[in-house]
């Protein structure tokens, strides 16, 4: 069954994620990126950021807290067995630092019905505790029919 385009614009409750230096290190190790900006506190303190920062793609970690409720949304009713990640786009603004509280809001920004598949795009906007933007993520998933 096609995904109903009436859900375009549906917004989901925001989530505030507390960024810890240990989670940054865990993520950086997982992506095999041991840049001292992420791993070395002495280096990070002397850097222009003055603290451990997160790799840009750490945005997936706080983004996941918004994507999961959409996958589990019974009204939207996505067929998870047929869903694959089609495209991804991230725009980065202020860097994310250890100790930040990142609040992300998400909405369904697009749904396209095609003959053999549906395409759904979710836009996540993340801001830090100062209200400044850190990331805009566009997650595009393809659901085969």
């Amino acid at each position: 069954m096609a995904i109903d385009t009436k859900f375009i614009g549906k917004e989901y409750p925001s989530y505030t994620y507390d960024v810890s230096k240990d989670k940054i290190k865990e993520y950086a190790k997982a992506i095999k990126n041991q840049d001292p900006h992420f791993m070395d506190e002495a280096f990070a303190k002397k850097s222009k950021y003055g603290a451990i920062i997160a790799p840009p793609t750490f945005a997936v970690v706080f983004g996941a807290y918004l994507i999961e409720p959409i996958f589990l949304d019974s009204e939207l009713n996505l067929n998870m067995a047929m869903l694959v990640h089609g495209e991804q786009e991230f725009e980065f603004f202020e860097v994310v630092k250890a100790g930040d509280a990142i609040t992300t809001t998400a909405k369904i920004s697009d749904i396209r019905n095609k003959e053999k598949l549906d395409v759904i795009t979710i836009e996540g906007i993340s801001k830090n505790q100062h209200g400044r933007s850190v990331c805009r993520g566009l997650y595009t998933f393809v659901v085969r029919k």
Binding site: I31, D35, Y49, V60, E87, Q88, F90
Partner: peptide, 25 residues
């Protein structure tokens, strides 16, 4: 995609300089 981003930020020398990345899987 994170591996690709790492290649870019290693080259740029500063992870904060990456302002945008996109791809199709």
């Amino acid at each position: 995609l994170a591996f690709a981003a790492k290649t870019v930020t290693d080259w740029a020398g500063d992870p904060g300089k990456l302002k945008k990345i996109r791809c199709r899987f």
